[in-house]
Amino acid sequence: TYYTVKSGDTLNKIAAQYGVSVANLRSWNGISGDLIFVGQKLIVKKG
């Protein structure tokens, strides 16, 4: 599943929405910090 980042989104918010961990979101998307951008597509695997 792909999720497109919207204004106001955070990794924590997206992780909670999908029932996954922030660590997994980072791993699946090659993100090291907490910086995400509006319009960015993130890979999300269902929890």
Rank of each mutant, 00 (worst) to 15 (best):
T4S: 08
Y18Q: 07
V44I: 15
K45W: 15
Q17R: 11
L11C: 04
L42K: 00
T4A: 07
I31M: 10
S27P: 01
I31P: 02
Q17M: 14
G19P: 02
S32W: 10
K45L: 15
I43N: 06
L35S: 13
A23H: 14
G39I: 01
N12G: 15
N29V: 01
K13E: 14
A15I: 02
L42C: 02
I43A: 07
Y2I: 12
I14M: 03
Q40F: 04
Q17E: 13
R26I: 14
K6C: 05
Y2Q: 08
S7V: 14
G19M: 11
A16H: 13
V5K: 00
A23F: 08
L42Y: 02
G19K: 11
V20W: 03
S32P: 10
S21C: 06
G30R: 09
K46D: 15
L25W: 00
A23Q: 13
T1F: 14
Q40D: 08
K6T: 10
K46W: 15
V44L: 07
K6M: 11
S21Q: 07
K13N: 12
Q17P: 01
K13I: 11
I43C: 07
I36S: 02
S27Q: 13
K46T: 15
S32M: 12
T10Q: 06
G33M: 08
D34N: 09
K41L: 15
K45A: 15
V5F: 03
S32R: 08
Q17H: 14
V20M: 06
V20T: 11
I43K: 08
K6Y: 04
L35F: 14
F37N: 10
I31C: 03
T4P: 03
G47E: 15
G30S: 12
S27F: 10
T10N: 08
N12W: 13
W28V: 04
N29F: 01
N12H: 13
Y2L: 09
I14R: 00
A23W: 07
A15D: 01
V44D: 00
V38W: 06
K46I: 15
W28N: 03
N12M: 15
I43E: 07
G33D: 12
G30E: 11
Y3M: 05
G33C: 05
D34K: 06
N24H: 12
A23P: 09
G47S: 14
I14C: 02
L25P: 00
K13W: 15
T1H: 13
F37D: 09
T1G: 12
R26D: 02
S32G: 10
L25Y: 00
V38Y: 06
S27G: 09
L11K: 00
K6A: 10
Q40H: 05
A16W: 10
N24Y: 08
T1D: 11
F37I: 12
V22N: 04
K6E: 13
I43G: 03
S7R: 10
I31A: 03
N29T: 02
G30W: 07
D9F: 01
S21D: 10
I31K: 03
K6I: 14
L25Q: 00
L35H: 10
V22Y: 04
Y2M: 13
R26V: 09
V38S: 09
D34L: 07
S7Q: 13
W28C: 03
Y2T: 10
K41Q: 14
T10V: 05
I31S: 03
N12Y: 15
N29L: 01
